[in-house]
C-alpha cells in the first residue's frame, strides 16, 4: 500500500542522509522524497512516499522515529489529508499539436509558463494520479522532458504536525 510519511526533523547537516540511509540499509523503498526547511529554520519538513504492507510500514515508522534527529513523524495516509506534487514538462508544440496541447493543459488546469516557437513548458500541480493522467493524455511522443517535485502533504482540518 502507498503511504505518505511526513517528518519534522532537525535541520542539521547529515540528517537527510540518515533517513535515506535507513531506507537502503533495511531494504525499504522510497518512491518520492522532498525536503525543505520550515518557518522555523531549525526544522526541516521531509515528505516521502513509500509502499509496503502494514508490518513493513510499522517497521519503517518505528525506525524513522528512532533516528535521533527525527523530532516528529506522521503517516498522512492514516487520515484525511491533502497531497500535492508539482510537475514541469516540456512538450513539443508545433503545427496542429500546438492548439491541442494548450487545450489539454487547460482541461487539467495547468499553466504554460514558457513558450518558444516549437516548445511549451507546462506547469501542473495536483496529486500523483492527476499528474500521471496528464502525462497519459498528452501522449508520450510529445514529451521532451519532465521534472517532478515529489509529493508534499498536509493533514486536513485542525490537526498539525508541529512541536
Amino acid at each position: 500500500m502507498r503511504r505518505i510519511i511526513s517528518i519534522l526533523m532537525e535541520n542539521e547537516p547529515g540528517a537527510l542522509s540518515r533517513v535515506v540511509g535507513l531506507f537502503s540499509q533495511r531494504g525499504y523503498n522510497i518512491e518520492t522524497l522532498t525536503v525543505a526547511p520550515t518557518e522555523d529554520e531549525t526544522l526541516s519538513r521531509l515528505t516521502m512516499t513509500t509502499t509496503g504492507d502494514e508490518k513493513k510500514i510499522e517497521q519503517i515508522t518505528k525506525h524513522l522515529n528512532k533516528l535521533i534527529e527525527v523530532v516528529k513523524l506522521v503517516d498522512l495516509t492514516e487520515g484525511a489529508h491533502i497531497e500535492r506534487e508539482i510537475m514541469l514538462m516540456k512538450v513539443k508544440a508545433t503545427g496542429a499539436q500546438r492548439a491541442e496541447v494548450k487545450r489539454t493543459v487547460d482541461i487539467f488546469r495547468g499553466q504554460i509558463v514558457d513558450v518558444t516557437a516549437t516548445v511549451y513548458t507546462v506547469q501542473l500541480t495536483g496529486t500523483t494520479d492527476k499528474l500521471e493522467a496528464f502525462i497519459a493524455a498528452i501522449g508520450e511522443t510529445q514529451v521532451l522532458e519532465v521534472v517532478r517535485s515529489g509529493v508534499s502533504g498536509i493533514s486536513r482540518g485542525e490537526k498539525v504536525l508541529s512541536l
Binding site: P13, G14, S17, R18, G21, Q25, I68
Partner: peptide
C-alpha cells in the same frame, strides 16, 4: 567516517 559508520552507530556527530 560519519558516512562509513552511519548504519552501525546509534548516532554520530561531526564537530564543526
Amino acid at each position: 567516517m560519519v558516512g562509513l559508520s552511519r548504519p552501525i552507530v546509534k548516532h554520530s556527530f561531526m564537530v564543526r
